[in-house]
Simulated assay, not measured.
Amino acid sequence: MLSWERLRVLAAVAEHGSIAAAAAALHVTGPAVTQQIRKLEREARVALIEPDGRGVRLTAAGHIAAQAARGAARLVGQAERSLATMDGQVVGPLRIGALNSSFGPLLGPALRALTDEHPEVVPTARSGEAVDMVPLLFTRDLDLVIVESWSSLPVRVPPRIRLEPLTVHEIALAVSARHPLARHDTMTLAEVRDEVWTACRPGTDHHDAQLQAMRRHGIEPDIRYVVDDFLTQMTLVAEGLAVTLVPRPAVADSPGVRLLPVTPGLTRTIAMATREGPATPVVEALTARLREVAGLASP
């Protein structure tokens, strides 16, 4: 008998195009993916993948098995939704991915309201970047992901993922209150091309969007302080060691820091990403609470 879990791994390889990409989507290691496929081949008594340069490709039998796995996944998903919506009860596990800065002002209050109203919901949450978390919606390792999308670098989501904006934040230039620039009312990025910068680590949505915004103005920033935490960045800014671009609400009232509007303006949209199709009651309940916290009316 073919193992469903191993078929699910093969389907991930077919969907994402490589062992490494499938491993990232399934949140496991590459050798673990290879091992599962080898076991599936022994069960099927036929080769399912074959070498293709430095990667692999599915054999004819592999394509048949992957197609069957995708069909099985659809049936499992339908069964999960039907069972979850049979009596409309808001109960059970709720798996969430979110960017760090959304936990306090948005996700935390929404989860508190949700669990107060529905104590049998069991939420879990992990922080991360959209590029890593959104694929986990397909594998059902996550039910909802909160992402950010800068006007300088809009987030891209694959087909069959629904993206709903929750709130829009102004991006401001953070400088020390003692910095000569603090006397200005607004700033252009060209005026701060020679400053030392602090930024999140490369590969994060925030870092890449900030870098893209600056490069549009011909600026290659001198980033000397790589820090993911906004409050730590504000400490560096307050000491006059660096400047940075930050969403205004995330660092409001930081002592010793002046936030200046940027011309032309930059914004960051916070949005929730979910799978297309009917949502389970628990996901519907969370999205409703998130809209309430964000000050939006439910559709």
Rank of each mutant, 00 (worst) to 15 (best):
W4C: 00
V9T: 04
L10G: 03
L10N: 05
A11G: 05
I19N: 04
A24W: 13
L26F: 14
L26E: 02
L26C: 15
T29C: 02
T29G: 09
P31N: 01
T34L: 08
T34G: 05
Q36E: 10
R42M: 08
V46H: 13
L48H: 11
E50P: 05
D52Q: 10
D52A: 15
R54F: 13
R54L: 11
V56N: 04
R57T: 09
T59N: 13
H63V: 12
A66F: 11
A69D: 15
A69Y: 05
R70D: 13
A72K: 03
A73I: 11
R74I: 12
L75Y: 05
V76R: 01
V76H: 13
E80H: 12
E80S: 11
T85A: 09
T85H: 02
M86E: 14
D87I: 03
G88V: 08
V91S: 10
V91E: 05
G92K: 04
L94Y: 10
R95L: 06
I96D: 01
S101C: 08
G104R: 00
G104W: 04
P105K: 00
L111D: 00
L111W: 10
H118A: 06
P119H: 12
E120Y: 14
V122Y: 14
T124R: 02
S127F: 08
L136W: 06
F138L: 07
T139C: 04
R140Q: 07
R140I: 03
I146G: 05
V147W: 10
L153C: 07
R160G: 09
I161E: 02
R162I: 07
L163H: 09
T167I: 14
H169E: 10
L173D: 10
L173Y: 08
A174K: 03
S176G: 13
S176P: 06
H179M: 09
L181I: 12
R183Q: 15
R183D: 15
H184T: 13
D185F: 15
T188G: 15
A190I: 14
V192E: 08
V192F: 13
R193Q: 11
D194A: 12
W197Y: 15
C200M: 06
P202V: 07
H206D: 00
H206S: 11
H206Q: 09
A209L: 05
A209I: 07
A213P: 05
M214P: 05
M214A: 00
M214S: 13
M214I: 00
R215Q: 11
D222C: 12
I223D: 11
V226Q: 07
V227H: 12
D228L: 12
F230K: 00
F230W: 12
L231K: 12
T235P: 01
L241S: 04
R248G: 01
A250S: 03
L259K: 01
V262Y: 02
T263A: 00
L266F: 04
T269P: 12
M272E: 14
A273G: 08
R275F: 06
G277K: 05
P278R: 14
P281W: 09
P281T: 10
E284H: 09
T287L: 04
R289D: 01
G295K: 06
G295W: 01
L296K: 00
A297H: 07
